[in-house]
Amino acid sequence: MSEMSYNEIVLEHFTNPRNVGEIQDPDGEAILTSKVCGDMMKVQIKVENGAVADIKFKTFGCGAAIASSSIATEMVKGKTVEEALKITNNAVVDALGGLPPAKLHCSVLAEQAIKMALEDYVNKHKQG
């Protein structure tokens, strides 16, 4: 319960989250609920030439969940799907300059929801 305070980067992403919204006819999408705390993230992606051309999210969650959603979507935007799939929650936490220990699971939610949306695209793509 201690050390709940967020750093400047987290607060900035929480206050001005990037990529909030929805995509009409997404190429891949996922909605995931955290087993840890009940937070929920929805991710939609648009893929062009094998790369993430656009990504949007909606998150029901705390400051860390919203900030993680924002920075993680920024991190995969423009990357190829293969590269984007390599995103880790540690990379998300690093990009945020750290999260309070009790909030690390929020970065996992962002990482996994994005991966699920990418995998949704890969699966659909395979089926042709």
């Binding site: 929805e22 009409q24 929805k42 909606k58 998150t59 029901f60």
Partner: peptide
């Protein structure tokens, strides 16, 4: 609420 997937679901996925 504008960034909540739960709100969008509840209000019938009103897109854009």
């Amino acid at each position: 609420r504008a960034m909540s997937p739960l709100f969008a679901q509840e209000k019938g996925m009103r897109k854009n």
